[in-house]
């Protein structure tokens, strides 16, 4: 069985400029904890309407995402070698139509949270109140105003099925005085701030109940600069 310790070798199969190494690694632990212990989804259930959904909103540097998908059997490890090439299903930004298992195509920042809110509303309208929808965004991605439209509505509607995880490497050009989580908390979200590499803390943050409210987990990692 492929485990956490195998991820580095999987990531190494996708050559990337060295300057992106930190960014690739910034999401690795969050992704691993989600797919290993939190999300109720598997390669056999990618069409199951009652599966949990993970939306990689910050589509940049998806190496860690692809490595986790390979580790969990969603894709063959051999596919990683050809990433970014013309016929590969694995682009430098994911495409859900090419890659079953990726819930959304992303890369342009600020699209995942709105799609996540709509997904939760669609599930709820069908009486599917169990599936979780987890959206991964970056702290700089939060510059996009579209996120703030989604934060307000999700908070006001009390979308408990929705979790936003902000991987915070303090890369937003103008920063977030008081913390990015405060923007969510003000709108009624449950807020948890954890070390983005601490698997136990991430697991606790993702799984402790937050009745009647959406959840934001701020996963703090090494500053980009």
């Amino acid at each position: 069985m492929t485990g956490y310790r195998d991820l580095a070798a999987l990531i190494d199969r996708m050559p990337s400029p060295a300057k992106y190494a930190n960014i690739v690694n910034s999401t690795l632990d969050v992704l691993w904890v989600l797919y290993d212990r939190v999300l109720d989804v598997s390669p056999e259930r990618i069409e199951d309407p009652d599966r949990d959904r993970f939306l990689l909103s910050k589509g940049h540097c998806p190496n860690a995402f692809y490595a986790v998908l390979a580790a969990k059997g969603f894709i063959e490890a051999a596919e990683l070698d050809k990433w970014g090439s013309f016929a590969s299903r694995l682009g430098k930004h994911p495409d859900r139509v090419l890659l079953p298992g990726a819930e959304i195509g992303s890369g342009s920042l600020g699209h995942g949270l709105g799609l996540g809110v709509g997904t939760v509303l669609g599930l709820r309208a069908q009486g599917r109140t169990a599936p979780k929808v987890v959206v991964l965004v970056g702290d700089a991605e939060m510059d996009e105003g579209s996120n703030h439209e989604a934060i307000v509505l999700a908070g006001r509607l009390g979308l408990e099925q929705l979790t936003a995880v902000v991987v915070d490497n303090t890369s937003a050009s103008h920063g977030w005085p008081g913390g990015i989580g405060a923007r969510f908390a003000l709108e009624g979200w449950a807020e948890r701030v954890v070390d983005g590499h601490d698997h136990t803390a991430l697991y606790e943050a993702f799984t402790q109940p937050h009745p009647g409210r959406p959840l934001v987990v701020v996963a703090q990692v090494e500053p980009k600069n």
Binding site: P49, E103, I104, G110, H111, L113, G114, L115, G116, V117, G118, T119, V120, L121, G122, L123, A125, Q126, G145, S146, E149, A150, V152, L153
Partner: peptide
């Protein structure tokens, strides 16, 4: 509300959820 980016984002999410 008066949030047109979200208008379309939510529309997309609803479709992804099977609506």
């Amino acid at each position: 509300g008066i949030r047109e980016q979200l208008l379309i984002g939510v529309t997309g999410g609803l479709a992804l959820a099977g609506m």
